[in-house]
Computed example of a mutant assay.
Amino acid sequence: MKTIVIIPARGGSKRIPEKNIQLFGGLPLLVHSIQYALANGEIIDTVYVSTDDESIKSIALANGANVIDRPAHISGDLEPTKTALKHALETIEDEVENVILLQPTNPLRPQNLLKEAFEVYHKGNYDSLFTVTRNHQKLGKIIENKFQPFNYSIGQRSQDLEPLFFENGLLYITKASLILKDIIISENAFPFEVNHIFANVDIDTTEDLEYAEYLIKKMSRLRST
C-alpha cells in the first residue's frame, strides 16, 4: 500500500494568468511543491500532478513528477479540490493507502514539516491531518453598521485572546479510502499546528506573489550569512 503526493494544478487562473507556472524564486511555482515532495522520498512513493494544461504537464514531467490528465469538466473555477483527488485515485492502478495533498499556491514549507506531520499521523493512527496556524488578531463582525467583537472583549489585551486557528493550506494527509468518499478532512482529523512565517503564504494575487518573493530572498540572504 503506497503513500503518494497529489498536486492539483489546473491551467485556468483569473487573478494571475498561468499562475501555477509563473516564475517564483527562479522556478515555475508548481516546481517548488514537486521538489518538496521528491525531497521526502523516505515517506512518498510517487508524486502526481493532476492537470488539464499541456504547459503544466510538460513542466511537471520535466521535473520528475507523474501526470494525471484531468478532464475539462472537473477543471473549472468552482470545482472543489476533492474532485481532482478522487479522479486521480480512480486513475492510478496502484493500491494507495495515504494521499498527501500539496497545493502549488503554497510553495514555501518548513523543511521538516512533512516528516514531522506524517510521524504524528502514522503514530496517532489518524485518518486525516491538516495544518493550522494560530491567529493573533482581534476579530469581529459588522452587523447593522455596528462592530461586534467575536473573539475578545473591548479593551482586552491581544496576548489574552482565546486561541483561534486558521487552516493554512501547507499540507493535508488523508486516507485514500476517505477521498473516494469525497472527504479530505474528516471529523476526527488531527490539526497539526504550524506557527511559521511560511504559513501566511498562499498565492492568489500578484501582491501575494510579491510577498512570497520577498520572503524567499530574505531567507536566502540569511542562509548565506
Results as ranks from 00 to 15, higher is better:
2 K>C: 06
2 K>S: 09
9 A>E: 03
10 R>G: 14
10 R>P: 01
11 G>N: 02
16 I>H: 06
18 E>R: 15
20 N>C: 12
23 L>P: 08
26 G>S: 04
28 P>M: 04
29 L>Q: 03
30 L>E: 02
32 H>A: 01
34 I>C: 00
35 Q>S: 10
37 A>T: 06
41 G>L: 05
41 G>H: 04
44 I>E: 02
50 S>M: 08
51 T>S: 11
53 D>F: 03
55 S>L: 14
62 A>Y: 08
62 A>C: 08
64 G>L: 03
67 V>W: 05
72 A>W: 10
73 H>D: 12
73 H>M: 08
75 S>V: 12
79 E>L: 10
80 P>R: 06
81 T>E: 14
82 K>I: 15
82 K>L: 13
85 L>M: 13
87 H>N: 07
88 A>S: 14
89 L>K: 02
89 L>T: 02
91 T>V: 09
96 V>P: 04
96 V>Y: 04
98 N>D: 15
98 N>G: 02
99 V>C: 02
100 I>R: 06
101 L>P: 01
102 L>F: 08
103 Q>N: 14
103 Q>D: 15
105 T>Y: 09
112 N>F: 11
112 N>L: 12
113 L>M: 11
115 K>T: 12
115 K>Q: 10
117 A>M: 06
120 V>D: 00
124 G>R: 01
125 N>F: 08
128 S>D: 09
131 T>I: 07
135 N>L: 13
137 Q>K: 15
140 G>F: 09
144 E>N: 06
145 N>K: 04
145 N>Q: 04
149 P>M: 07
152 Y>V: 13
153 S>H: 15
157 R>Y: 14
158 S>V: 15
159 Q>C: 12
160 D>W: 09
161 L>H: 04
162 E>D: 13
165 F>E: 05
166 F>I: 04
169 G>R: 05
175 K>V: 01
175 K>T: 03
179 I>Q: 08
185 I>W: 00
188 N>T: 11
191 P>R: 02
192 F>H: 02
193 E>F: 03
195 N>E: 12
196 H>Q: 08
197 I>A: 13
197 I>G: 11
198 F>L: 08
199 A>C: 01
203 I>H: 02
205 T>W: 07
207 E>F: 08
208 D>E: 04
209 L>N: 05
210 E>M: 13
210 E>P: 03
212 A>C: 03
214 Y>P: 00
214 Y>M: 12
218 K>P: 01
219 M>E: 14
219 M>W: 15
222 L>D: 11
222 L>V: 14
